[in-house]
């Protein structure tokens, strides 16, 4: 028996919004420690890794490890039927071929449940090596989203250059070029508005705008985002989900031939 309850469906909607741009379907691996998901996008350029800890749920029970393959468009249809303030409970029997989403209104006067067929998906787990990154940039998530959106207009790729002075995002194309430089903040009223840079050595890497923009669909999950970079390895874009876990996106760089 598997049962996981979240006080607000809003958070699950945000999690789904953060992955459904990149993935059509995905396997949710449920265990005692929580719900994990790891999946590559169709073109095998990026990897999504989601972790929702069991202690982040209002109620969590998982008697046996369970892998639930879900069609994310169908899951989105179901979540659309919930109000953000509704409680959501995800339920499945051991070895079941369906999962049930139950929504309860705050006053408990409306209870709805939706059953969805599960899919058998080919599980391809990738081993992600531990890496000491040359640069880790932390910045407000809305700022990162804004930069990606703005630069997409000027080119297909963004060049990210990180030095101890700051981080620069550049794009260029037929119409011209664009450069955005962020310096480390010296003092901020709110911690989430800070830009900070941890640098071992400077890095310059090129990434496809399209994927960066998809990653920023996670912006509503977290006020801050971190970008971890080293030469010639995938970028890690990480959003901490308060009191629940994290979502990480890995993106393979573009390499000059």
């Amino acid at each position: 028996m598997f049962e996981a309850r979240l006080i607000s469906s809003g958070i699950l909607k945000k999690v789904l919004d953060a992955i459904k741009d990149l993935l059509n379907e995905a396997t949710f691996d449920c265990s005692d420690s929580g719900i994990q998901l790891q999946a590559m996008d169709n073109s095998h350029v990026s990897l999504v890794s989601l972790n929702m800890r069991s202690d982040g749920f209002d109620k969590y029970r998982c008697d046996r490890n369970l892998s639930m393959g879900m069609n994310l468009a169908n899951m989105a249809k179901i979540l659309k039927c919930a109000n953000n303030t509704d409680t959501v409970t995800i339920k499945a029997q051991d070895n079941a071929d369906t999962v049930t989403f139950m929504f309860e209104s705050q006053n408990q006067e409306k209870v709805s449940d939706y059953e969805m067929k599960l899919m058998n998906l080919d599980q391809e787990h990738l081993g992600i090596p531990e890496t000491d990154y040359a640069c880790i940039v932390r910045m407000p998530s809305h700022e990162f989203a804004r930069i990606c959106r703005d630069l997409t207009q000027f080119g297909e790729s963004v060049v990210i250059t990180c030095t101890k002075e700051g981080v620069r995002f550049s794009a260029s194309g037929d119409s011209g070029s664009a450069n955005i430089k962020l310096a480390q903040t010296s003092s901020v009223d709110k911690e989430e508005e800070a830009v900070s840079i941890e640098m071992q050595e400077p890095v310059t890497l090129t990434f496809a705008c399209q994927y960066l923009n998809s990653f920023t669909k996670a912006t509503p999950l977290s006020p801050q985002v971190s970008l971890s970079m080293s030469a010639d390895v995938p970028l890690v874009v990480e959003y901490q989900i308060p009191d629940l876990g994290h979502i990480r996106y890995y993106l393979a760089p573009k390499i000059e031939e």
């Binding site: 095998h44 990026s46 391809e124 081993g127 890995y250 393979a252 573009k254």
Partner: peptide, 14 residues
């Protein structure tokens, strides 16, 4: 001209 790398060239299947 830059080439998009594949994520599988960095992470191996387990």
């Amino acid at each position: 001209k830059s080439t998009q790398k594949n994520i599988l060239s960095y992470f191996s299947k387990t």
